[in-house]
Design a binder for these strands. Structure first.
Length: 277
DNA sequence: GTCCAGGGAATCA
DNA sequence: TGATTCCATGGA
């Protein structure tokens, strides 16, 4: 199956660390694991060429996952018109899209992400999937889906520790207990505004503003969030001399400056800062 | 050996 | 409120 990729830049979108389960193959293609299937993506100048362990509704799923129908160029223009620095880096933002990932997977993955490196996060998530996710065979290799709530719930604390998540094990267990007591918690967030969602998520022990923002940005496609981490603070420090570089002040600043696109703006800054070398 | 990683909670002033 | 410290752990 193939789809027109238009302005989508697969490689830069992957580089940004928004997904932790993207495997680069020897032929420059990527293999990744979606909610219910494994896919491999090659790209040429015009198309994404996709193969999958499950062809059902594949085009629709790919279009949605990579957000191919959203016009990001107009969003980049909006941000550029609001800010000189965004205008400077705008050409490096073209092609970057925010993927539509699974809510539960984002919740667990970004709890693991705190004070951790992308490589270790990926490693731990993969080990969790091997322990309790469903096995899928694709191109003669074995892959494991991200576990469902019930599957993940079967892991003991000791078993979680074996995946290298360290002190974050109790946060995961705590979040699972929260979901057990509020079975529709993740879906109900769809009906709440972003401020309410942040409040609900940060009420869970182990989830602060940064992790909650990432869950909403990557799992709910909410662009009006503030995923402020060490990279973003460095970036603001270097490029906005009049803004005090702490989470509170930067949140206030981006909210006023970029409004309901603040999350996207912060993500663009993060990408630029991380990848400029 | 030391520092850091897409932070957050607990503690103390 | 605001600043500091601790939390596991693998890689640089």
């Amino acid at each position: 199956m193939r789809v027109l990729k238009k302005d989508f830049d697969l490689y830069s979108s992957i580089l940004s660390g928004q997904c932790f389960r993207m495997i680069e193959e020897d032929d420059n293609s990527f293999t990744t694991i979606l909610k219910d299937r494994v896919i491999n993506i090659k790209e040429d100048n015009e198309y994404l060429i996709i193969t999958s362990s499950n062809e059902e509704n594949l085009e629709e799923i790919i279009t949605n996952y990579f957000d191919l129908n959203t016009d990001y160029n107009s969003l980049i223009d909006k941000l550029s018109n609001k800010d000189k620095y965004m205008k400077q880096i705008s050409k490096y933002c073209i092609g970057y899209k925010i993927f539509n990932q699974d809510k539960f997977e984002m919740l667990i993955s970004y709890i693991i992400s705190q004070n951790n490196s992308v490589k270790r996060i990926s490693n731990s998530i993969n080990k969790i999937c091997i322990k309790c996710g469903k096995k899928i065979t694709f191109n003669n290799k074995e892959y494991y889906l991200f576990p469902t709530f019930d599957e993940l719930k079967t892991l003991t604390k000791e078993s979680l520790r074996e995946t290298g998540i360290g002190f974050r094990d109790s946060y995961i267990i705590n979040a699972l207990n929260h979901l057990e007591n509020n079975p529709n918690f993740l879906n109900e967030l769809d009906n709440k505004n972003t401020e309410e969602c942040l409040k609900e998520l940060t009420s869970i022990k182990g989830i602060g503003m940064k992790v909650a923002s990432c869950i909403l940005l990557f799992g709910y496609h909410r662009f009006d969030v503030y995923p402020i981490d060490t990279w973003v603070i460095k970036n603001i420090e270097n490029n906005y001399k009049n803004v005090t570089p702490n989470q509170k002040k930067i949140t206030e600043f981006t909210k006023n400056k970029f409004g309901n696109l603040s999350g996207l703006a912060i993500q663009y800054m993060f990408n630029y800062e991380r990848n400029k070398k």
